[in-house]
């Protein structure tokens, strides 16, 4: 603690060291009191519990949702990978998620670039418009989209799903990319120009490599968002197009099908993996 304070405010050093550590430790066993520790432990338990039960559950040998399972097997994974309906739902979801990720990254990336670089009136309004799908209650967004898509014959079509999910993914993509762009040092552009680079060369050799991690994060976010989205998908679904989360929803509400346990575990692993990729790339770059 005291180290951090000295690191951020070097001017204040002389006055501090004698007083602070002792004062901070007063009444505390070297850090957090037991009351605080208990609350932190309880909160951590609430945060961890769902993830902690999903994976063991998928190896259950029983045919009910009883937890913990009495015996273990791979039967639900077998059931998942051999069921035509589950595999079709998985394929549909992955295909749609890829399309959504591409669409949202292109639209959102361009928007973030424009918002970051251009000064024009109405900029605040456009930012609000981009963030609005996050703030408007999600059920209202879903029902509104369903309402007009029925008239436009977009329900049950891939393009309908892609549009619906892109609307919801855009706030995430734009935010992630704006954050990445705000750390962009634009004197580098000027430096490249001074050294004789054309705007195109500057863009390709300076801008693109620098914003690539942000673009990747945006892409990963949009992909995972679409892969996981249920509410819009529930309204837009048709017998031909059922996404994996919708199939999972139905397997709890309509039929008690424990295959969902295997599907859940796979989903947890897949989403974590996709979201981790940009982080690893970033770390590798920074250590290089």
């Amino acid at each position: 603690m005291s180290k951090e304070a000295t690191a951020t405010e070097p001017d204040a050093v002389p006055a501090e060291p004698a007083v602070e550590p002792a004062a901070l430790r007063a009444g505390k066993d070297g850090g957090l009191g037991w009351g605080l520790k208990t609350v932190v432990a309880l909160t951590s338990l609430v945060l961890i519990a769902p993830t902690a039960v999903v994976i063991p559950m998928s190896f259950s040998g029983g045919t009910t949702f009883a937890f913990p399972p009495k015996d273990w097997s791979l039967r639900w994974y077998e059931s998942f990978f051999t069921s035509e309906a589950w595999m079709r739902a998985l394929l549909t979801s992955v295909q749609l998620a890829l399309l959504v990720a591409v669409t949202a990254t292109v639209l959102g990336g361009a928007a973030a670039f424009g918002l970051n670089r251009a000064g024009f009136p109405g900029r605040g309004a456009i930012r609000s418009l981009v963030m609005a799908p996050l703030i408007v209650p999600s059920i209202v967004v879903a029902v509104s989209i369903y309402g007009v898509f029925l008239r436009w014959h977009l329900t049950g079509t891939p393009i309908g799903f892609v549009i619906g999910h892109t609307v919801m993914a855009l706030p995430f993509v734009v935010t992630v990319m704006l954050t990445s762009l705000s750390g962009y040092d634009r004197t580098l552009d000027t430096a490249a120009a001074t050294l004789g680079a054309t705007p195109l060369t500057t863009f390709l050799r300076i801008t693109v490599p620098l914003i690539a991690p942000g673009v990747m994060s945006g892409f990963a976010f949009a992909f995972v968002y679409s892969l996981d989205e249920v509410v819009i998908a529930l309204f837009l679904q048709s017998p031909d197009i059922t996404t994996l989360p919708v199939k999972m929803y139905n397997s709890i509400t309509l039929e008690i099908d424990p295959t969902i346990a295997a599907a859940s575990s796979l989903m947890v692993v897949a989403t974590s993996f996709v979201l981790l990729i940009p982080q690893f790339v970033r770390r590798k770059r920074s250590t290089r």
Partner: peptide, 24 residues
Amino acid sequence: LVGWFILPATAFLLVFFAYPLGNI
């Protein structure tokens, strides 16, 4: 020029988000 970059996303959200919301 860069200002035009925001146009596609803005149009997209106006048609597929703001209009449906206004419509309902």
